[in-house]
Every structure is written in C-alpha cells, then in structure tokens.
Nucleic acid binder design. Structure first.
Lengths: 264, 264
DNA sequence: GTCCTGGACG
DNA sequence: CGTCCAGGAC
C-alpha cells in the first residue's frame, strides 16, 4: 500500500504581506509541505500562528531582516538537515530537511543577479554565477534521494520565457547563466519535474513582472522556479503543476506556486 | 419654510489612506459639506472620484506634499473665499468658502506644536502660539455670519482631556495655549458648539492617540477638534455630535468627525 | 501606531 | 509595480 506526498514551493515575496493568499492556497491545495522563498522576515516575526492553525506544526525557519529568507512548513515530521551559505555572506537562501520517508528536501533561493549581465559592470551577476557553481560542487556530492526546489532565478529553455530572442541578454536567460544551470543539473542527473510533466516546447512560466500593465494579457512570463529530483525520487512523481491563477489573486506575489505529488 | 444644513469636519490623517472610511462616513451620515484636515496630498492626487460619485461635486482643495492640507467637499455650491497663511510659510492649513445662505465656512488646521511646551527649546511651540495670535487678529475683523471648524490642536477645558492634571504640561492643554485659544474665542464672541450641545463638565473627546493599546479601554482622549460659530449662526444650530465610533473603524484616523445641523 | 517620503532591490 | 526600511511628524 502506498500513500501520496504533496510538496509545494512558492516565492512569496514577503510572507507577511502575502499571508492571506498563502492561507487561501494552503486551504485550497492542502500540500503536506510548503517551501517558501523570499519570506523577508526575521524568524521572531514569522506569522507562525496561521500555519499552525492550518496544521503545519513543523516549521523550519531561515529568515533575515529585509531581504531573502526561506522556510519549510510541514504537516509531517521534518528533521532539519542543514543550511548552506554558498556565498558565505550570511544571506538566508537555503535550508534543507530530511523526511521520514527517506527523501531529502532542499529549498533554495538563488540570487537574482542584478540588472546588467556582466561580471565586471555588475558584481551581483558574478555572485549569482558563483552561487550556482558552489551549489554544483555541493550537488556533485549529493548521494541521497533528494528533491531540490525553489527560485533558481534562471529560465533555462527557450520555451521557458515569453521571448527567447528578446531575453538573450536579460539576466535570468543569458547563455552564461543557462550553461551554469545546465552544469548544476548534470552534476547529479537532476530530473526537471516541470519539463517531465509539461514537456518542451510547451509554454511554462512561474513568474510575471509586477511592472506589466496586465500580466495575463501581455503574458511576458519566465520559468524561474523549479523542482528538480534525483532519478529515484522523480520516478515517484505522479503529478506536477504550476498554479498560474495565483498570479491573479489580490495583492499577488510575482511568482506562483509549484506543486508535485509523489506516490511513496 | 426652513431647511437643514448639515456640516461635518474631520481630521482624516491622509485622505488617501482613509478613503474607505471617508466613504463609509459620508454614506451613513450624508452631510451637505465635509471639511477635512490633514489630507496629506497634493491637489493633483486628491481622490476626487470617490467624492463626486457620492454627490460632492463642489471641491475646494488646498493640499501640499507630505504634511498638512485641508479641503472642503460639498453637495451644495460653495464659492472659495480665501486661503489664509497665518504663518506665512506656505503651509496648507486654511481654506474659507462662502455659502449661498450667507454663512462663511472657515476650515483650519492649527499646527500641533511639537513635544516640548517651551518657545525656547521648541520653536514649533512658539509657531503654534503665533499662529493662534494671528488668527485672533483676523478674527477680530470678521464681521459676517461664520462657522469656524477644524483641528485647533488645543483642548481648552479640564473636561476636554482625560486628565487635566497629567496634561497640564503636555502640548495641547498647557495654560499658555488655553489662554491663547481663549483670546481667539473672545475676539469675536465665538460660540463653542461642542459645549453648547454637550456642556461641561461632561466628557467630550475628539482624538485618541494611536499609541494606546486599546484606545476605548484606556480612553485617554482629548477634544482637539472644534466647531465655533458667530452668535447669529450658533442660534441656527439644532444638533451637534462627535462621532466617536469612527475611532474604532478599520484603519481609523486618530481624530473623529464632528457634525452640526443648522436650521436655515 | 500610523502616516508620509525616498532609496534599494526586484 | 511593489516589497522593505529609515527618518520625521504627530
């Protein structure tokens, strides 16, 4: 006999500003585990009550003031594994936990990388590339069944953006970033669950800028958020969805949630 | 045959932040004219549409960036009379209009006066006193039926504050401010409508600090807002109320509206 | 407490 | 467009 494990990931762009739609999402979708990125809150101010009331009694918080911040909220037991600081600058961008079923869950928020895709002109771009390279060194040594989720801030495929041509020199879709992310993916045979369930060249976006007049009409989206699984874990996946309607909710995040179900 | 003229005054602490409760108040109370203080918006950004939709098609705006700002919104014709700048520093603190019934309506926002009740240590305190003295020079020459409303930032009577003793040295209730306001009142036989309809020593407050845990429970209020009428106009007043429940509305102003009805 | 602004970041 | 903060005012 097997059971279903449902895991969601969402760059929430401030968990406090978004608390109502997080509650709506959890109520409607009821994942066993929710991974958040960009919580933008120190652990002491995290709105724990809302999550506990909905049954998410296992909280692993990794926040900081102002920017970044990740968290894993779970209805099932999770054991904190570790927090990687791949930039070694104290930024709260990763937390990993161990599930009782033997799967490791890694939640990451890759740096956005600034506006200019040039290491010299824009140090943040170099830091982003360095971050992915250091993740790759870590990934090479991963030897357990693992699900790696989060905001990778890279849209690797042509069909991951609204216009491959117009975004070739825009941070998140430049060849140098895509190559870096490809090396990360190959370093541990990571299976891209998004494209396993919604194959290229199909349109698949997880982010739409706030700056668009009408995000749905112009549909200038990018697939910046991902769920990657080691092959053993990928085999268990039975469903994977991008919850696009969340982008149209009141006071939305610019990212939408990803959800995968596993038969374990 | 006579008709009723209903005039309201409210320090709104940002008309944009408070637009929902202003609409609620106008819908419930339906005054003919609403005088606002602390609109905190330049005229170009004033939310005119909401007022026009509710029938307030006569707008006299006197706003500035950031602070202060007054406005008169009316369902009946108003002719702008003048804007006094009693500090001569460009701050938007007064606007006066003429009504067809012969009454002049003067809407004023007296400076708060800073924290320390000392002309030397705190220049703002001196500016507040100077402001009231200059109003007094103006008031002495007023020779028309007039209603003077607004946030005077002074609670003159002992029963206008939650503790006369504890506020004797607190700006808004110091003897020097009260004496200055008394001189203003005596300069044109102004009738204090608040106390005409709700006589001392009865409790009457129009403002409760945001800083209180529970404004209603501690009830540390002050009567900072007033409606004063020349005797001819005061005789027409048939009702005057302080709308205390507005302080408990969602995202409230720290002041509540005053409403007077006149039989004209 | 709650507002405004202006800057950083996305 | 929208988050967070700091600083000033009340």
């Amino acid at each position: 006999m097997s059971s279903i494990l449902k895991i969601a990931s969402w760059n929430i762009n401030s968990v406090r500003a978004r608390i109502d739609i997080v509650e709506k999402f959890l109520t409607e979708e009821s994942p066993d585990i929710l991974c958040l990125q960009e919580t933008k809150v120190i652990d002491g101010d995290f709105p724990e009550g809302v999550f506990r009331r909905l049954g998410y009694n296992h909280l692993v918080l990794c926040g900081q003031r102002m920017h970044h911040g990740v968290a894993i909220l779970s209805r099932i037991p999770i054991r904190e594994d570790r927090r990687h600081d791949w930039q070694d600058n104290g930024e709260a961008r990763h937390v990993g936990v161990q599930l009782d079923c033997g799967i490791r869950l890694e939640n990451v928020y890759v740096p956005a990388g600034g506006d200019i895709p040039d290491r010299e002109l824009n140090p943040k771009f170099g830091q982003k590339l360095d971050y992915i390279e250091r993740m790759t060194r870590w990934s090479e040594k991963c030897d357990q069944p693992t699900l790696l989720v989060g905001d990778f801030n890279v849209a690797p495929l042509e069909c991951d953006v609204w216009s491959h041509k117009q975004l070739l020199n825009v941070v998140s879709h430049t060849p140098i970033e895509v190559e870096s992310l490809d090396r990360l993916q190959q370093s541990n045979e990571w299976v891209d669950l998004g494209r396993q369930f919604h194959p290229a060249p199909g349109r698949l976006y997880t982010w739409w800028s706030y700056r668009a007049q009408d995000w749905a009409k112009s549909d200038r989206g990018r697939r910046l958020d991902h769920m990657w699984a080691t092959p053993d874990v990928a085999k268990l996946a039975i469903r994977h969805d991008v919850h696009e309607p969340c982008r149209g909710w009141v006071r939305p995040s610019d990212h939408v949630p990803l959800v995968t179900e596993f038969a374990i």
